[in-house]
Computed example of a mutant assay.
Amino acid sequence: MDILQTLVLALVQGVTEFLPISSSAHLILVPVLTGWPDQGLAFDVAVHLGTLAAVVVYFRHELVRMAVAGLGSLRGRRDADSRLAWAVVLGTLPVVFFGLIGKSFIETELRGPIVIALTAIVFGLVLWWADARGARCRDEFSIGWREALIVGFAQALALIPGTSRSGITITAGLMLGLTREAAARFSFLLSIPTLLASNVLVGRDLLASEAPVDWMGLALGALVAGVSAYACIRVFIALLARTGMLPYVIYRLVLGVVLLWVFW
């Protein structure tokens, strides 16, 4: 990979990871549309580590409180932070399970532009409906174990490229009556163990590979992805109350239609 491809793909990963428009779809589409070679497993791991670092840094204070409260709950001391911590744990289980059993099929059969186009359109419309009809009256601390699993099973759908992990989990949160900001915060907190599990799975494949590694390129990709992802989280949450989900819905619909026009 040359430096231009590294910068573009890292920036794409950083900007799209936490917006409801599907980072995996864009990482698949950019090489298809530009004719660039596939970036490879090592680069995917690097940029996902960058975005993982970004969300951990952004929510560092919340994560400390949740970790302390979660451990305290094992001794019977339960509060809002411990409930949120266990909700994140429960919400992660479905995507880990389905990721383990469906990884090979998804990587070989569901990475095409037509699949991305259809999921972008369908789940974009579902996001619009949830944003328009949701009660938007609850915060993330009110999530119970059943609701955490509902959001978790929704997150498992994001294994299909084009669905968008943040998009489908925010959609589920809105359907459960969360405010836009609460749905986004829970989605981003849920991304931490999910990104970690994804990196472990992909990293396992990387360790088995004998391909040469460009360590400087990986470091640059991780840095650009991390910085852009951190900025994206801050801007997205700050603007969410004013913009709602409509701009992202429109983008998804336009993207899906263009892909169908080009690749059908």
Results as ranks from 00 to 15, higher is better:
W86F: 13
A130R: 07
E109Q: 14
I121Q: 02
A156L: 11
A154C: 10
F236G: 07
F263M: 08
W128L: 14
S104D: 15
D131M: 09
A85M: 07
A238C: 00
T194L: 14
V45R: 04
G226N: 05
F186L: 07
G144F: 04
D44S: 10
A222L: 05
P20M: 04
D131N: 04
L195C: 04
Y251L: 11
I28R: 11
S209L: 11
W261K: 15
A222G: 05
V68F: 14
G256A: 08
T92H: 12
A46T: 00
F188W: 02
L33N: 05
L190C: 05
R136Q: 14
A229M: 08
P31G: 04
R75E: 13
L33E: 12
L218F: 09
L9T: 03
V8L: 08
C137F: 15
V254R: 00
L63F: 05
L239D: 14
A229Q: 10
L49K: 03
I121K: 01
L239A: 15
D81S: 09
E147G: 06
G35M: 02
L240C: 12
I101G: 10
G167M: 07
W129Y: 13
W36D: 07
Y58T: 04
A80V: 00
L157Q: 11
L259K: 01
P20G: 07
Y248A: 05
L118D: 02
H48K: 00
R204E: 14
